[in-house]
């Protein structure tokens, strides 16, 4: 109980009459690399967006170190500073350079001094191989490079856990490679990660825990070896089968 970074309990989300998530239960511990897989429309991204409070859950609870973040009085800004997010569409700030993108959160949200923020930003930009591009604007770099900057921006906040919402889905195969390489290294260094992905090889090789979702519920979860080699549930088997055939 002591070291649960995030606990999701009986989480539900509806958009109007559409039930998107039903009774979701799972836990993220420090150092976990959890991959959420499943068909498009199964609610994976919505779940991630609920965890970062970009969507308000309809029912259920999310606990951050045992404290509920879903009750009304909670201040989402402080929480979000500790739980980073990397988006499918990068969402870099178009009016800032690569370096400024990685500094703004530190200086404005964490209150870090400029020089220190700059050093931290440079450290993480070097880690993702984007240090040479500090003066570029987002419109001047490629998709893969943007995503690496977005990862550096999230890391510069030194989050407890980093959420990835299909980080490679908008990229061509070459760029997918460079982004996955960065993520692989982060996992190796012990960063707590929660990754929604369609990259099955990444889920199989890198994650410590795999969650398979279908139709808004968690169908099956467990160690990657178990999910990929001995799936219990019919739907998991179907899904993985289809992926292998492609």
């Amino acid at each position: 109980m002591a070291d649960h970074v995030l606990q999701v309990q009986h989480l539900g989300k509806t958009f109007g009459k559409n039930v998107v998530l039903r009774d979701i239960d799972f836990t993220v511990d420090t150092g976990d690399v959890t991959c959420i897989i499943g068909a498009s429309g199964s609610g994976k991204s919505t779940l991630l967006r609920c965890i970062n409070l970009l969507e308000t859950p309809t029912c259920g609870e999310i606990l951050h170190h045992g404290v509920s973040i879903t009750d009304g009085k909670f201040n989402p800004s402080k929480y979000r500073a500790k739980v980073g997010m990397v988006f499918q569409s990068f969402n870099l700030f178009n009016n800032m350079t690569v370096l400024e993108n990685c500094m703004i959160g530190q200086t404005k949200v964490l209150g870090v001094k400029k020089e220190e923020a700059r050093q931290t930003a440079m450290f993480y930009l070097e880690k993702v191989g984007m240090a040479p591009y500090i003066n570029a604007k987002p419109r001047q770099i490629s998709g893969g490079q943007k995503q690496r900057v977005a990862i550096a921006r999230a890391l510069a906040m030194q989050p407890e856990v980093l959420l990835f919402d299909e980080p490679t889905s908008a990229l061509d195969p070459q760029m997918v490679g460079e982004v996955l390489e960065v993520m692989r290294n982060l996992a190796r260094e012990g960063l707590t990660m929660l990754v929604v992905t369609h990259e099955m090889a990444f889920a199989r090789d890198v994650s410590s825990h795999v969650v398979f979702m279908a139709d808004g519920v968690i169908c099956e979860e467990g160690a990657p070896r178990q999910i990929f080699e001995n799936p219990v549930h019919e739907r998991t088997r179907d899904f993985l089968e289809r992926f292998r055939n492609n």
């Binding site: 800004s77 979000r80 988006f87 990068f90 969402n91 870099l92 959160g105 404005k108």
Partner: peptide, 16 residues
Amino acid sequence: NGQTEGAKAIGMTHFQ
């Protein structure tokens, strides 16, 4: 809207 979400995700308030 992605710009707003990106800013929210690093903990910025609406004003920031």
